[in-house]
């Protein structure tokens, strides 16, 4: 979805920071957003990470980031809890991303 939305809106994105958790993904405020996800899920340095998003993108963005993190904590639990299979079509369509981000190493891949 990230690659698709960037392609459709003519934005460049570097996907590697998604896997590594560090670096600039090339989207506005991207580094701060990745830092907020890291801090939220680690439970450490959260206020500082939140404030960096506020400084980069504003308070509304920080609130939405927290909501999206929450939403995907939900979706991850659902997908993993029901044993959602990854279809052959998805694998073929996402082959380059799977290799780049090492998604095949995940337990449910």
């Amino acid at each position: 979805m990230l690659s698709w939305s960037c392609k459709e809106t003519n934005q460049k994105v570097d996907l590697l920071p998604i896997a590594s958790g560090t670096g600039d993904p090339l989207l506005p405020g991207g580094e701060a957003l990745i830092g907020m996800v890291n801090a939220t899920l680690a439970g450490s340095g959260v206020a500082d990470a939140r404030d960096k998003v506020v400084a980069a993108l504003g308070g509304e963005a920080a609130v939405d980031a927290a909501a999206v993190i929450g939403n995907f904590e939900m979706m991850n639990r659902i997908a993993d809890g029901v044993g959602m299979p990854v279809g052959a079509g998805s694998r073929k369509r996402m082959a380059d991303v799977i290799e780049l981000l090492g998604l095949d190493q995940y337990p449910h891949a």
Binding site: S5, G29, L33, V37, L41, L57, D64
Partner: peptide, 28 residues
């Protein structure tokens, strides 16, 4: 809508979603 926007752009939302799923080691 690839250009959907709230406080974050669609691409920024997907970046946050992707990093969350990566930490959780979830394919989705």
């Amino acid at each position: 809508n690839p250009a959907f926007q709230r406080g974050l752009s669609r691409a920024q939302m997907e970046l946050v979603a992707s990093r969350t799923s990566a930490i959780n080691e979830c394919f989705y």
